[in-house]
Amino acid sequence: MTAKVVTITSGKGGVGKTTAVANLAVALAADGAKVVCIDGDIGLRNLDVVMGLENRIVYDIVDIIEGRCRLRQAMIRDKRLPELYLIPAAQTRDKTAVSPSDMIRVCKELRQEVDWVLIDSPAGIERGFKNSIAAADSVLVITNPEVSAVRDADRVIGILEAEGKGSPQLILNRLNPAMVKKHDMLSAEDVLDLLAIKLIGVVPEDSGVIVGTNRGNPVALDPKSRAGQAFRNIARRMKGEEVPFLDLEAGDGLWSKLFGRKS
């Protein structure tokens, strides 16, 4: 196997990176792929609780890097899906415990074992972010339809391009169709106009995401969830499938933007 390493990042905190990693990992694994996700937020571990795996942690990524355990021992197996694993962040250390070359080394070993490595980046554009993107084959930038989130996403896209990571793809999260309709929220079309990168998916604002997180059950496991459907669609697009975009009042212009201006 040769895994694809994909990092989800945003610049701004709280826009849905951890939620997206958990849901995309679950969606890919439910489809039969072997998936490892890595919590890159050293000192602010969260992916474990979002995935409902917090009680199973023994070792973490810093234990792997510092040689206290083997890679396999720090891979926590998911309780629902047999081919899904989590490598947790260290909670009592900081970002300096990991370097970009450590991440490249760990991912190199993982590439032999799985189909996908998904990395949950911390907020910001410093060390933790640099660590998280070091090994990435591709990057997904996630943002909300909101001024500060879009501005920070633009900064991150600029840095990724400058670092030679190529143009990332965009996840627009927490879109509220009713507010877009009233012109009180940026539409998907607006955000694409501003950021000028390729869209991989739009996820609606959905209270089910919070309910699912409360229970440690990512919504992508719920066949009836709108947000879950959006995450499942993104997972399929990551695999290269052509999946039509959900109708989320994105604005009529979105369709011409997606299909008329393909790069």
Binding site: E146, V147, V150, R151, V180, K182, H183, D184, M185, L186, S187, D190, D193, L194
Partner: peptide
């Protein structure tokens, strides 16, 4: 003015 237009222009 609709606030979304405001947001878009300021962001531009």
């Amino acid at each position: 003015r609709r606030s979304a237009e405001n947001a878009k222009e300021r962001l531009q």
